[in-house]
Design a protein around this nucleic acid. Structure first.
Lengths: 335, 335
DNA sequence: CTGAAAGCGCTTACAG
DNA sequence: CTGAAAGCGCTTACAG
């Protein structure tokens, strides 16, 4: 193996000290303009690459951020969080940081085992992507490592979170349906399952309230069991004219089920989703849905995390990233 | 911020030197059994965590592996490589290593810009996941960083690669169809697009050859343009009784197209896929397909990479991971 | 079995 | 504007 080039090599070649090389390469004050150019040129010529480990030790920063996703959100048919991770990795890189992914196994979550990145002191902070058990949140919170929740939050008011505006997205979507003449509108989603679903439900409910449409409990449909596993949806005896589904995958299943019952979408029944993921265009007809702004989610969480590392005591609160309705073909206007 | 605990803190508390602490914590020789236990107990009590940066600098290893995926393989509807990455991250962690994901933008690929992880000396080796342009391969190869191809290979006989056994998988699948009485079998996939598709085609062809079934060029169908974008498939005038598709997504599209032409699957026409990804069970009927063993792919590539880091001059060659036929409902027996 | 010394490559005060 | 000194936390010879 050819030895790595260090600042010392550059210093010797140029005939200055390593201190000066360090200053020049980092654009710090205290080096003459001409000398600085010279040093940079020689660095380039020699193929110098910074030894990050040395810098890390010196500064006490790893320039890594851990991204922890509970494994139940990473099945073969759930790529959403992996896509978020991908965007986070990109966003971090543009700030000179790197992401390290950790899939948290369900057993580690139950047994309150912290991710290895923590014990190896591999990261300067941890982004928790996807709702996790309360005891685990407590545990993470007790580590004094900067923590950020992404795509969920709970009653830990002392932890910062970045979330999609689930509430407002579902509210706007329901308003849209009502504007088209719908008044019999169901919500599909188990409202005690995750805070996302709960907030989407509340947005739907607010829209009903504002329009003085009573909430009918038999039109709030369960879509998953207590483990989060999707279950068959029990259709109500009296059918609504529209279904607000808590996500595209469930909307896809609802459409299938309605079709099996001989109904046409959207002629007989309108169905809307949330997320604008692969299921939105896999459904026939393509779903009207709310697009989650993954890129913005990634950027906000990256910036917030870097801010927390720089000033650990600064509070950021709950940062809400708005979504956007994508109009497609699964909704019909009622006359 | 509370100061971090170091080996020195442990050493002082126990009344020994940091050398002894280091030996004890790393299970190295030269520490008495009882003392070792004592040291470990105190480390635990104090909540000691290794400073990886210091270890890294000392040993010249980052304990990180870069995983580079060209961005064209990471669209919203392509989660396969992200899932492979996820498994690699897991496999690496069990070896005390971590993965750092880098999505290679198409412009960086064209302009031969190496990933930042390289310049920041963030990784001990790079796994290239997904076919990449030849000039870029040359470039990577010139860096003297250990490189491993994953899920593709080309004529660089001096680079190691881990691939799914595309050839054998398609060969077995075609054999299966022939065993069921099919003799008019088409292949769907642009055979100059990627080496995976090419190898799957060759496996299909070998099966035909062995059974003395002539290859009909009009039954080798294009499915994507030169950019890899999927295109409408031009069905041949005379229809075969079975389609061997190069991947599940394309099988899904073929099924749709055949259905639109009024054909029933599998009664009128059999269709098989490859990958066993989300499209396999999204298709109606569910696809008979070849499952790619993602976990094994991840483990083999991780082990090979760690082997290369330990012994840079050792050659590993092309490591082939077998797939497995998953029998479902898209194939019918011809009598 | 235990420890003093040296060094990995960098950056931050501080002195000139 | 430039550089000598010190130190980040660890581990590897080496000496006792």
């Amino acid at each position: 193996m050819s030895k790595h080039i260090t600042m010392k090599d550059i210093a010797e070649k140029v005939g200055v000290s390593t201190v000066t090389v360090s200053k020049a390469l980092n654009d710090k004050e205290g080096v003459g303009g001409e000398l600085k150019q010279k040093i940079k040129a020689v660095a380039m010529e020699l193929g110098y690459r910074l030894n990050t480990a040395a810098k890390s030790m010196r500064e006490g920063l790893t320039y890594n951020i851990g991204v922890v996703i509970p494994e139940r959100f990473t099945g073969p048919d759930q790529s959403f969080y992996l896509r978020v991770y991908q965007e986070i990795a990109k966003a971090l890189e543009s700030h000179g940081y790197y992401g390290i992914l950790h899939i948290l196994s369900s057993s580690d979550e139950q047994e309150l085992q912290l991710p290895r990145v923590y014990y190896d002191r591999k990261v300067d902070g941890i982004i928790l992507l996807g709702q996790i058990s309360k005891p685990y949140i407590e545990l993470m919170n007790s580590t004094r490592t900067p923590i950020l929740f992404l795509d969920f939050y709970d009653d830990h008011s002392d932890i910062d979170a970045v979330v999609t505006d689930n509430f407002y997205g579902a509210y706007e979507m329901t308003n849209y349906l009502i504007r088209l003449g719908h008044r019999n509108i169901a919500f599909v989603g188990s409202i005690h399952s995750t805070s996302s679903i709960q907030d989407r439900f509340l947005g739907y409910y607010k829209s009903l309230l504002e329009h003085r449409i009573p909430l009918r409990q038999e039109w709030v449909l369960h879509d998953r069991d207590e483990h989060g596993t999707l279950i068959d949806i029990a259709m109500p005896a009296e059918l609504p004219t529209a279904f607000v589904c808590n996500c595209d995958q469930v909307a896809y299943l609802v459409v299938q089920q309605l079709k099996n019952n001989g109904l046409r979408i959207p002629e007989d029944c309108s169905v809307v989703g949330f997320d604008n993921d692969i299921y939105a265009t896999l459904t026939d007809p393509h779903l009207t849905t709310v697009e989650v702004d993954i890129e913005q989610l990634a950027q906000s969480s990256t910036q917030t995390m870097l801010g927390k590392i720089a000033s650990p005591d600064l509070r950021h609160g709950r940062i809400v990233v708005p979504g956007k309705i994508i109009y497609r073909d699964s909704v019909r206007e009622l006359l």
